[in-house]
Design a protein around this nucleic acid. Structure first.
Lengths: 209, 209
DNA sequence: TTTTTTCTACCTGTTTTTAGGTATTTTAAT
DNA sequence: ATTAAAATACCTAAAAACAGGTAGAAAAAA
């Protein structure tokens, strides 16, 4: 049985060290190294074959979700296992949709970790117990998923969150306040909410602010 | 030089493993074990001497902050080093005030970790570079601290966040909508913000929702 | 028991948001 | 080159929020 080339991407050096130690006992895995930054890892991946990558969602440069896509673009055969603290259903679903083979929380047991790795390299999708529960209860406001916002919408959302009125935003972005109102309206519609209060809550839950 | 008896308390088994590995190279430290739960650790501490403890803030049972106090009550000579992801100034300050000898973020380098441990056991207080910066810049909205809200205000804040209008809230709580407006006004004033959008943002940042 | 805080409710008036549209011009994708 | 998406801007009118007060009753603290 050939050794599976494995990398770890996590912004916590301590976690990298921990995973290395834990996985050093797995005879069929060969840890080629740990990366703190997403871009560092991508440039490595461009030049080397890799079977498995353990990925954190929170990284200093790009998000783990985005990294999933990029990894799959470069090397479709590399299995991705997400290791994260994020319990939001939306994030988990996004990860899976972007090509991750599994998702587990950092506080899951070492047994769970081993099990998920074993499944991932077999090509199966595997979640830790807690993650399973999160997936199976689709909480109301997350049902229709994260709305895709345009650049302008994100910009205006941030300014609304900062307490600016449509008029102020208009001045700041050299737009008619009426245009800002339109964007505001679209934001409220996209999120399926009734007013800014709910909008800001939803955007926060979706980690968009 | 006698070995310093050291324990690790963290709800992530992976982090515990990583720290154990990292610190196994330190000849003057003896890791006596890792604990996932605060209470487990406290009951151990009641029966054994300990020189140093590495502590996470987020634990399943009690908070690391509270744990600091309890540790010092049981064993004043035990040095506490906080290892956490929390970058909120308030949390850092609370930890220090409750007897921690240092605070570092989990994504700090392994060198920083070693250095802080060395300082902590010498009896000095030591922060990682990033934490230093956080301490030295009292960010605006944290200056006047978390506003103390009354029961009613918290109740109404939650309903505002749910997208309810003053009228709806009034009906729900059997209050005049004018009363709700007054509470709304007071909330906006207490938080020092201009409108609900900013209010919800602030409340979120302050972990009040 | 007195004092303070919280909760209640109102008034006046202005500003802002929200809901229901329509419509043209850019920009990006096919 | 066409199509689709995004960004721009407008209209009308109602609903809600915001700013600036005042003020009495109830509850909690001193």
């Amino acid at each position: 049985m050939p050794e599976l080339l494995t990398a770890i991407v996590d912004d916590h050096p301590i976690v990298i060290e921990g995973l290395k130690t834990l996985l050093s006992h797995e005879t069929n895995l060969k840890i080629i190294g740990g990366f703190c930054k997403g871009e560092d890892f991508l440039s490595y991946l461009s030049g080397h074959a890799l079977d498995l990558v353990l990925l954190d969602v929170t990284l200093p440069d790009i998000s783990g979700i985005e990294l999933c896509q990029r990894i799959k673009q470069i090397s479709l055969s590399t299995s991705i296992l997400i290791l994260s603290n994020h319990t939001e259903r939306s994030i988990i679903m996004q990860a899976i949709q972007n090509g991750a083979s599994g998702y587990l929380l950092k506080n899951s047991s070492i047994e769970e970790l081993r099990h998920c790795i074993a499944e991932a390299v077999k090509g199966n999708i595997c979640y830790s117990k807690e993650v399973m529960e999160i997936i199976s209860r689709p909480s109301k406001n997350e049902l229709q998923g994260v709305p895709r916002l345009t650049r302008r919408e994100k910009e205006i959302l941030a300014l609304i969150a900062a307490g600016k009125t449509s008029q102020m935003i208009g001045q700041e972005l050299f737009l008619s306040p009426l245009t800002v109102d339109t964007h505001r309206k679209n934001l409220i519609q996209k999120f399926g909410v009734k007013n800014v209060a709910e909008l800001i809550m939803a955007a926060n839950q979706q980690q968009l602010l």
